[in-house]
Design a protein around this nucleic acid. Structure first.
Length: 490
RNA sequence: GGCGGGUUGGCGGAGAGGUUACGCAGCGGAUUGCAAAUCCGUGAAGACCGGUUCGAUUCCGGUACCCGCCUCCA
């Protein structure tokens, strides 16, 4: 069996991955707060942990991995949007408006992440469906002295958990010394954090032993992971920015609620995304959503490819140049397969995946190296002399393996190749191919190539790639293809 | 102030204590009426200063610079 090594943030070391139960490998990843479209940064953990999910499914079997990614649908920004709509005269209740907002955001999220080739997780729990579990956990924490109620709030007593700060390498005293936050008067200790807070009539709320209120941010992940994965599970993932305070607080809550349990065995954190070398922010004007890119005509698989070129533990820079290169590489794979109809129109045989790609992924998700190996495999099956010397059967084996390997990284090459193949062949394209052939013949006879060159230049200007070999002429619409310009040439 | 990440050839970006990363761009060649595409070949690197070592870009220590987190944030 493939040995997977993962860098565990908790131990700061690369470790051999040993699941608690190989027949049910369990992973929890912090999902989005559903108040707006997912921005490009949100896509990074989705893609990173999607690759891990696929790898685990490959190694342990698709039915032996449980992947949970939550939706945070209790949040001030959601409330603010609902209140805004209400203030614009919407007659519906605040709860209805909140529900509407979160519903539509979740719909967008599914569409956008699906476009990136991310598999749906096994479970996608919403915080609001787990309020009673949260309340139960909070009651337990109060009973065991790890939490206290004050002025309608319930706070976690940070000093009651000796290992607080261990994950992120911080000490409570250092943090207090450098704190820039105003401390609420009802806190015993400045670092204590909210498990439950009161809601007024303009805010969503649930009845609880401490009055009508809503949960703090961190408790939802503790409650949902326990409910869906148990008190101990294998992998907990998320962005590095969540390491503190979110994950630190999750650990404190869960470990204090169940001291005998392990909680998450391996912690994984992806580094941040940058755009053209700078942090993505609205003020810098380099902020955009996944949907913005898709609408600009950058396909999801191109975004995925760019992301996977950088190891998840390093800051990743999104640039237009990278997107262009990625598109070229993927296009090449598509056109390699586009005319191999026997691959596209029937189920493929299982000949396994490329060992080198699998090895790269198993080494702490070295997606960059995996892409390099996949690239080599792609070149091999693209009519290399070695490939052409193989029997038809052996070629088929190589093709299937290549496609399966790409799928392990989340690229559906069959779909892309079909798209390439089934591109509506423009009648104009055929017309101009014929015309180029004819003009070339006559140009060769007369020795005058100026008309031919002019036509070729005009086609290039219309965004068409002109491929003229000795015995054929092929025109391919490029990314800048402009059918109106082409029409005008007639 | 505390914590963490980064610094590799023109650009992007990996691995490995000694043997080609790879891709893009460049250059040379094949092919072409000329190109494009494709194929073949090729130069070019590891922030800085020390240490360990027969040998370090790779390990250790320090310096500099960049980025992020510590407040909602993926």
């Amino acid at each position: 069996m493939t040995r997977i090594k993962l860098h565990n943030t908790k131990t700061k070391a690369k470790e051999l991955f040993a699941p608690i139960d190989p027949s049910n490998v369990r992973m929890y990843v912090c999902g989005p707060t559903v108040y707006d479209r997912a921005h490009l940064g949100n896509a990074r953990p989705v893609i990173v942990f999607d690759v891990l999910y696929r790898l685990l499914r490959h190694v342990y079997g698709p039915d032996h991995v449980t992947y949970v990614r939550n939706f945070t649908d209790v949040d001030d920004k959601i409330n603010a949007e609902a209140q805004r709509r209400k203030s614009l005269g919407d007659p519906r209740s605040l709860e209805e408006l909140i529900r509407e907002r979160t519903e539509e955001t979740i719909g967008w999220y599914h569409a956008d992440m699906g476009a990136l080739g991310a598999l749906p997780p096994t479970h996608e729990p919403r915080a609001t469906d787990y309020i009673s579990q949260m309340i139960g956990m909070i009651e337990g924490l109060i009973a065991s002295g790890h939490a206290y109620e004050k002025e309608g709030h319930v706070l976690f007593r940070v000093r009651s958990y000796a290992e607080y700060g261990k994950l992120s390498g911080r000490s409570i005293d250092d943090m207090i010394a450098g704190a820039r936050v105003e401390v609420a008067p009802f806190k015993e200790d400045p670092m204590d954090f909210v498990l439950w807070k009161p809601s007024d009539d303009d805010l969503p709320g649930w009845d609880s032993p401490w009055g009508r209120g809503r949960p703090g941010w961190h408790i939802e992940c503790s409650a949902m992971s326990e409910d869906l994965l148990g008190q101990s599970f294998d992998i907990h993932g998320g962005g590095i920015d969540l390491q503190f305070p979110h994950h630190e607080n999750e650990i404190a809550q869960s470990k204090c609620a169940h001291p005998e349990a392990e909680f998450a065995r391996v912690w994984m954190h992806n580094e941040m995304l940058q755009v053209e070398g700078k942090k993505m922010s609205k003020s810098l004007g380099n902020f955009f959503t996944v949907r913005d890119l898709l609408d600009k005509g950058i396909p999801g698989e191109v975004i995925r490819f760019v992301f996977l070129q950088t190891h998840y533990s390093k800051p990743m820079d999104w640039t237009e140049a990278k997107a262009r290169q990625a598109r070229n590489e993927i296009d090449r794979w598509s056109s390699t397969l586009a005319n191999r109809h026997h691959l596209l129109d029937q189920p493929l045989a299982d000949f396994g995946v490329d060992e080198q790609v699998l090895a790269a992924l198993s080494d702490d998700l070295n997606t960059s190296l995996a892409l390099t190996k996949l690239r080599a495999a792609g070149r091999f099956i693209d009519n290399s002399p070695e490939y052409l010397s193989l029997s038809e059967k052996a070629q088929y084996r190589e093709d299937c393996s290549f496609i399966a390997t790409a799928a392990l990284l989340g690229f559906d090459l069959v779909r892309l190749a079909k798209r390439e193949r089934d591109k509506e062949p423009s009648r104009n394209i055929g017309y101009f191919e014929l015309r180029l052939v004819e003009e070339r013949i006559s140009a060769k006879e007369t020795g005058n190539f100026s008309d031919l060159d002019a036509l070729k230049a005009a086609l290039v200007a219309a965004g068409v790639e002109v491929r003229m070999s000795k015995d054929a002429v092929e025109l391919r619409p490029g990314p800048d293809f402009d059918s109106a310009k082409l029409e005008a040439l007639k």
